[in-house]
Write a protein that binds this DNA or RNA. Structure first.
Length: 430
DNA sequence: TCTGGGGTCCTAGGACCC
DNA sequence: TCTGGGGTCCTAGGACCC
């Protein structure tokens, strides 16, 4: 028996939750330390005032009162020296894969939760040391190899690990046991429980349940009566119980979408269609990078009053083609939006995604005469853009000042990672 | 001064088929 | 003429998360 064995439970599991701190900002600091390190920086939806919302900010900026969700204008008021940065999702996805690859070297039971966090089941990782030692090694390696800070939670299940990683930021490591739940969690308001949002918290409040402790001792039948199956989950969660397993099977993305808030409200059909052309181009390119086809095209329209609707159409045969997507988007818009009604935001989301190999047969059957040539052209164009950047080739309609065109302004970077064992399909770097 | 952009999961009604 | 229940797909919206 190794000395570290005593730190592992005889029954049950040991779960880590790794949470990257101020991830987007940290990536920019890692890429350009001279420019950004230690400075008050923030990634904003856009530096334009209209879209200006703080997506995330560095800890230096937070110390001055900058908060996520704040308007850029307001943020500049509390922190005039704030440096604003446009988001670069390509880089974020790349760094995401890198830190998960480091985590993977300690256990194959890894589940990517989002771009900046993952769960790691280390129940079977005794050979690397005690859980706390593994967490320390991970944190150190991610800092040395990627220059990124992270917080790690150690717990017997995913729910508690997630809560634990949030307890000490940045660069903290926290252990949360079931027996710590009453004194650490029960005094907090319900909305602090992961998975329980504002709406549910309001409903609970009306039922006289204010804290996680109230929820923990509430009658299950009472909760089920008001919340259905969610009711049982709520009580369990409040008691720190979570049986869900770390699921390393990486499923393909279920949807790929882009939305953009326009610099001004649009009323002209031609303007709207130009935005759709750019969005269709972006979204279809990501689709092809992941070797997928889309069965459903959905558009999102938001009016100036912030009321948002979605309209979708399922295609007779799946597509990977920007043209098809563009035409469906325009058609849906024409069918469901009155001409002249102002539009604040537009989006295209592809759903019903399928492996290209699986849908190839269908495509061939329906389009055998026309398809190959078109596909060849698209493939050639994709290759040129992989090599020379997104702007190397644009069709005439895309040359515009629309912000949707700005989405594409990041040059393709020639980095490829060896991720033979860890296939995180959500991230489409290669 | 209003309120970004990327997602997932769930629900619910209607169409359609058996 | 009226009758049933089950299953799946499509569509739209909403809650929630980062």
């Amino acid at each position: 028996m190794k000395p570290s064995d005593e730190f592992y439970p005889k029954n049950g599991r040991v779960i880590l939750h790794i949470d990257m701190n101020a991830f987007y900002c940290s990536v920019h600091e890692a890429l350009e330390p001279d420019k950004y390190s230690g400075k008050p920086i923030a990634v904003a939806g856009s530096v334009e005032l209209r879209k200006g919302i703080i997506v995330t900010s560095s800890y230096t900026a937070r110390a001055s009162g900058v908060k996520t969700g704040m308007q850029v204008r307001e943020a500049l008021k509390v922190c005039p020296q704030l440096i604003l940065i446009q988001p670069d999702f390509e880089q974020y996805r790349l760094f995401s894969r890198r830190f998960m690859q480091i985590a993977y070297s300690y256990s194959p039971l890894i589940e990517a939760m989002s771009i900046d966090e993952c769960y790691l089941d280390i129940t079977g990782s005794k050979q690397f040391g005690a859980p706390l030692e593994i967490a320390q090694m991970l944190q150190k390696r991610i800092m040395i190899e990627l220059a990124l800070p992270c917080s790690i939670g150690i717990a017997p299940n995913k729910l508690l690990a997630k809560i634990a990683s949030d307890m000490k930021k940045p660069n903290g490591i926290s252990i949360l046991r079931r027996r710590d739940v009453p004194h650490l969690l029960w005094t907090k308001p319900c909305v602090n429980l992961f998975g329980l949002g504002q709406r549910t918290a309001e409903k609970l409040s009306k039922l006289n349940i204010q804290t996680i402790g109230d929820l923990a001792v509430a009658e299950e039948s009472f909760l089920v009566k008001h919340f259905g199956v969610v009711g049982s989950w709520l009580k369990q969660a409040a008691n720190g119980i979570d049986e869900s397993l770390v699921n390393p099977l990486q499923e393909a993305s279920k949807s790929i979408g882009h939305t953009t808030t326009l610099p001004q409200n649009l009323t002209e059909k031609a303007d709207v269609e130009r935005v759709f052309l750019n969005l269709a181009d972006q979204v279809s390119r990501r689709l092809r990078k992941q070797q997928l086809t889309a069965g459903t095209v959905q558009i999102t329209i938001r009016n100036p009053e912030m009321k948002t609707i979605t309209r979708s159409f399922t295609l007779p045969t799946p597509t990977e083609n920007a043209d098809d997507i563009y035409h469906q988007a325009c058609r849906l818009f024409a069918e469901h939006w009155e001409i002249g009604k102002p539009v604040r935001l537009l989006g295209i989301t592809l759903q019903n995604l399928m492996d290209k190999a699986n849908s190839a047969l269908q495509l061939d059957l329906f389009n055998f005469s026309k398809q190959p040539k078109k596909e060849q052209l698209t493939r050639t164009m994709d290759q040129i853009r992989d090599k020379y950047g997104e702007n190397a080739l644009l069709t005439a309609g895309m040359i515009t000042n629309d912000p949707s065109a700005l989405i594409r302004n990041h040059k393709a970077r020639g980095t490829s990672l060896q991720m033979d064992h860890l296939k995180i399909r959500n991230f489409d770097e290669d």
